[in-house]
């Protein structure tokens, strides 16, 4: 068993544990903190897949920006004591567990069923394509138009947020 397999299992187990804790946690602040742990675990797994750029972006954008936004909103709304939110409807909860269990089963069967010789090792190209240089070359040559479209999307999001946060709905 090589060091990479050990790292993979450690990180995968901690990702799943932090995700479960995130879902069952009553306090939204703790929930967000477990989410950050989960995002860091995913960043390490991206590094195992030789995707350095995606790993750094994961930490910068998700753990850095988006989760700070979530924490900020939770503190702004003063949602400290979340046990007041009543979680009723046990029937609906059971349906939810059943549904997600079925989906998990389907996905696992879809993964296990194909012959196990399928894609055992990473492609030799993997080391090259994850670097910032390769991503940038691909992004600014083949995917320039989607890149510009994303900038328009972000502009629309900024304007929308300002309008939504300013307006007094009466």
């Amino acid at each position: 068993m090589s060091i990479e397999v050990i790292i993979f299992f450690l990180v995968a187990i901690s990702a799943i544990v932090s995700a479960v804790l995130m879902v069952i946690q009553r306090n939204p602040v703790k929930s967000v903190l477990f989410m950050i742990v989960n995002f860091f675990c995913l960043a390490i797994i991206y590094l195992l897949l030789h995707a350095q750029f995606i790993a750094i972006i994961q930490i910068l954008v998700y753990a850095g920006a988006i989760m700070v936004l979530f924490l900020f909103v939770i503190m702004l709304l003063n949602l400290g004591d979340e046990s007041l939110l009543k979680e009723k409807a046990n029937f609906r909860k059971m349906i939810a567990y059943l549904l997600s269990g079925v989906i998990l089963l389907e996905l696992i069967i879809g993964i296990i069923l194909p012959p196990n010789t399928f894609l055992q090792t990473q492609s030799p190209e993997a080391v090259k394509i994850g670097s910032v240089e390769a991503i940038g070359a691909s992004l600014f040559n083949n995917y320039l138009l989607p890149f510009e479209a994303v900038s328009i999307l972000l502009l629309a999001a900024i304007v929308g947020v300002v309008v939504l946060a300013k307006k007094k709905f009466k």
């Binding site: 397999v5 995968a12 799943i16 879902v23 797994i45 609906r92 998990l104 696992i108 090792t121 990473q122």
Partner: peptide, 26 residues
């Protein structure tokens, strides 16, 4: 090159996705 097959990554992804569904629905 790591010797972790693709199935492991897909399994982790499926598990996280299902946990997310449980959270959204409950």
């Amino acid at each position: 090159l790591t010797d972790i097959p693709l199935n492991y990554y897909l399994g982790l992804s499926a598990t996280l996705f299902s946990i997310g569904i449980v959270g959204v629905l409950t």
